[in-house]
Computed example of a mutant assay.
Amino acid sequence: MPWETSVSTVALNTPDKRLALFKLSQLAEEREKEHNGVLAPKPVREAAERPLLDLLSEYLQDVESRGRAITTVKKYRKILRKLFARCRWLKLQDVTARSFCQWRNQCGLTGKTTNDLLACATTFFDWLEGQRMLTANPLKYVKRTDTRGQAQFRRALSQTEVANLLSHAPHSRAVVYLAAIYTGLRRKELNNLKWGDLHLDAPQPFVLAPASITKNKKDARLPLRPEVVEALRSIRPADASPFQFVFNGQVPRVKTLRKDLSRAGIIFIDESGRRLDFHALRNTFGTLLAVNHVPLTDAVHLMRHSDPKLTMKIYTDASQLALSDSLAKLPSLVVCVGQRAS
């Protein structure tokens, strides 16, 4: 075609010259319509005919091939399939900003949850656009829910609650909780930690979480407090191999954590609706750093955050900060009794 910069070869699959010319003219007409925007490109038309779940499977295969964790891929599959069903999206033509917003308005889910769903769906449709299977992301201009002023999803344990949890949980799980609270390591990272990653006999003991198990895919060297070193030694088998998992399935899920919290007299969801799941132990780590006046730069590195705002806003439970003590440090300023207005 005149506007194409390179010559393309097309198989017409016929020995009949007249039929070949007819097919060629049809192809040329189709290309011209595509060029003028009258007809969508062929890959877009083909994708429009496929079930949305087929396209999702292709997307997830690509996500997995790019090195994302299997658990992450499973999470994307689960939440996107649910979203498609709830919005009644069977094919790409069903996906509209209006249908998403109508579902969001009546779904009853929290703003954080709907924002997470929107982010996952947007990433999927961006991928389809990048693969030339979609001309434009239908959710591109959908605004996120404003969650300012809403209570945080999680809270941190107080120091008293931490002590109670550690004293009431079985020893093997108490060691997991202690390690999580003093390192900020996530569930997946703890689950995949091996004895060879722990350097308990170094002059300054540390854990070196390899990039293969960390969320940001970077090696993480974290110092270990003496209490953590002692606790880890108490569960290390005498014949432990460097390639053996440290916690060997002992990182508890929510159901088990709730039982341990109950034994310790700690409520799972407080009066503000904030919960104490396993990731709340990471919030506890961040809050302990803040409460004990650890410099922000150090706290950001220990939390392994790329943005200090995450450390300050999301992983610091402000209800545990000694704000009255901080206010008391200001100089005393008073209004004289009996002072007259000028």
Rank of each mutant, 00 (worst) to 15 (best):
M1I: 10
P2N: 10
P2I: 07
E4L: 15
V7P: 01
L12K: 00
L12F: 05
N13E: 11
K17R: 14
L21T: 12
L27F: 13
R31P: 03
E32Y: 09
H35K: 14
P41M: 01
E46N: 09
L52P: 06
L56S: 01
L56G: 03
Y59C: 04
L60R: 09
Q61P: 00
E64Y: 04
E64S: 08
S65R: 10
G67V: 00
R68W: 00
T72V: 00
Y76V: 01
L83M: 11
L83E: 13
F84Q: 08
F84R: 11
F84A: 05
A85M: 10
R86V: 08
W89G: 02
Q93K: 06
D94M: 07
V95T: 07
T96E: 04
R98M: 07
S99E: 15
F100T: 08
W103N: 08
N105E: 14
Q106P: 03
Q106N: 12
C107S: 11
C107R: 10
G108E: 12
G108V: 02
T113F: 06
D116K: 12
A121E: 07
T123L: 13
D126M: 09
L128F: 02
G130T: 05
T135S: 12
P138M: 02
P138L: 01
V142Y: 04
V142L: 06
K143T: 07
D146Y: 09
A151Y: 07
A156W: 03
A156M: 02
V162E: 00
V162N: 02
L165T: 10
L165I: 09
L166V: 01
L166C: 04
H168E: 15
A169S: 15
S172Q: 14
S172W: 11
V176E: 06
V176T: 07
L178V: 05
A179R: 00
A179S: 12
G184A: 12
G184Q: 13
R187T: 03
R187E: 01
D197T: 03
A202K: 03
T214V: 08
D219L: 08
R221Y: 11
P223C: 13
P223E: 11
L224H: 09
V228Y: 02
L232Y: 00
R233I: 01
S234F: 07
P237R: 05
D239M: 11
D239C: 10
A240I: 01
S241D: 02
S241I: 00
V246N: 03
V246P: 01
F247R: 12
F247H: 09
N248Q: 13
V254R: 15
L257Q: 09
K259S: 11
A264W: 05
I266S: 11
I269D: 14
I269E: 15
D270C: 13
D270L: 09
D270E: 08
R274E: 04
R275D: 13
R275N: 13
H279E: 06
H279D: 05
H279P: 04
A280T: 02
L281Y: 10
R282T: 09
T284C: 04
T284V: 04
N292S: 06
N292A: 05
V294Y: 07
L296C: 02
L296N: 03
D298R: 12
M303D: 07
L310I: 15
K313V: 14
I314S: 12
D317Q: 03
D317E: 09
Q320F: 11
L321V: 03
L323N: 13
D325E: 13
D325W: 07
V334F: 04
V335Y: 12
C336Y: 15
Q339G: 08
R340Y: 08
